[in-house]
């Protein structure tokens, strides 16, 4: 128990450091020179850096990657500890572990994005959320952080797949939420005509918008899959695939919210600012589904 808790702690500090480094990276960038007319990046989406910013950016990426490794090891250690006490290993069997897993998925998703699109400034927002998630987990009371044996209802191979898929979708929605915040900040700075280099250092609005949309397009099928896996599990455990339990219902609500988003994207005017606000709203609903339901509403889901 001690080992994994220590590693989770380390993860938290590494993500905090990475977050700070990404902010530093943005501050160090001098983008004025390379600023292309809005919407028409000159040499691809990739950011070209020089001097300080390039070095800080590199360190930020390395620290993030190292944080991800520690996070993975922490989850593995927790899986091992679970195996010792109860013969099941899923390292997402209580609220704390679930949070740590979500952070892991957020950071992994972010690194994929960074390598694929060569954009680092997103890190300040998305790694920021990963760090907050990890921090929120460590604020949970100690009794929620330890690995207790699973109650009979959770003790099933379904927990491996249903919970991990659902949590991964949360991570994708978190990323979309972070990108939404980024969009709004940059859009506001542009609208007010601020010539702040901080905002100018962020990718152009269209790119942020598209990335946010992509994140939701990853989260949406995962959530659908997760909800249906939950229904299949319920069919084995509770004697019916759908019993309108609060957690179940809230997952459906979140699904409907993003369903509206996906369709809204196809009608005029639902890009950019409105889509960003909606993505943040959706993410807040995800947070409620993840935390609020567990702590505020009572139901069959035996978490926490």
């Amino acid at each position: 128990m001690v080992q994994s808790l220590l590693l989770f702690d380390m993860t938290f500090w590494l993500y905090l450091a990475a977050f700070a480094l990404y902010v530093g990276y943005i501050l160090a960038r001098r983008p004025g020179r390379e600023l292309a007319p809005a919407g028409h990046p000159t040499s691809g989406m990739g950011e070209s850096d020089d001097g300080w910013s390039a070095q800080i950016g590199q360190v930020a990426t390395i620290v993030t990657a190292f944080g991800l490794v520690v996070n993975s090891v922490a989850l593995l250690a927790r899986a091992y500890e679970r195996m010792q006490i109860s013969g099941t290993f899923a390292p997402w069997s209580n609220q704390y572990e679930a949070m740590a897993y979500v952070s892991w998925a957020i950071i992994l998703g972010y690194l994929v994005l960074e390598f694929r699109y060569r954009i680092k400034s997103v890190g300040a927002f998305v790694v920021g959320i990963g760090f907050i998630a990890m921090g929120a987990a460590s604020l949970l009371p100690y009794r929620y952080q330890t690995a207790e044996p699973l109650v009979p209802a959770l003790n099933s191979y379904w927990i491996y797949i249903h919970v991990s898929v659902t949590l991964t979708s949360y991570a994708a929605f978190a990323m979309a939420g972070g990108l939404g915040v980024m969009y709004l900040l940059k859009e506001r700075a542009e609208r007010l005509g601020r010539r702040s280099s901080f905002f100018a250092a962020l990718p152009d609005l269209e790119t942020i918008d598209e990335l946010g949309y992509k994140a939701i397009m990853v989260g949406f099928p995962l959530l659908a899959f997760g909800v249906i896996l939950g229904a299949m599990w319920a069919n084995y455990a509770w004697g019916g695939y759908w019993s309108w339990d609060p957690k179940e219902t809230w997952s459906l609500i979140v699904f409907l919210i993003y369903g509206a988003y996906v369709h809204a994207r196809m009608t005029r005017g639902w890009e950019g600012r409105r889509a960003a606000i909606y993505a943040i709203f959706g993410f807040l609903m995800v947070i409620f589904c993840f935390w609020g339901v567990n702590f505020l509403l009572s139901g069959l889901h035996a978490y926490a």
Partner: peptide
């Protein structure tokens, strides 16, 4: 419909 269903389901 998506939004109304989400609202009433709460």
């Amino acid at each position: 419909l998506f939004i109304i269903l989400a609202l009433t389901a709460t």
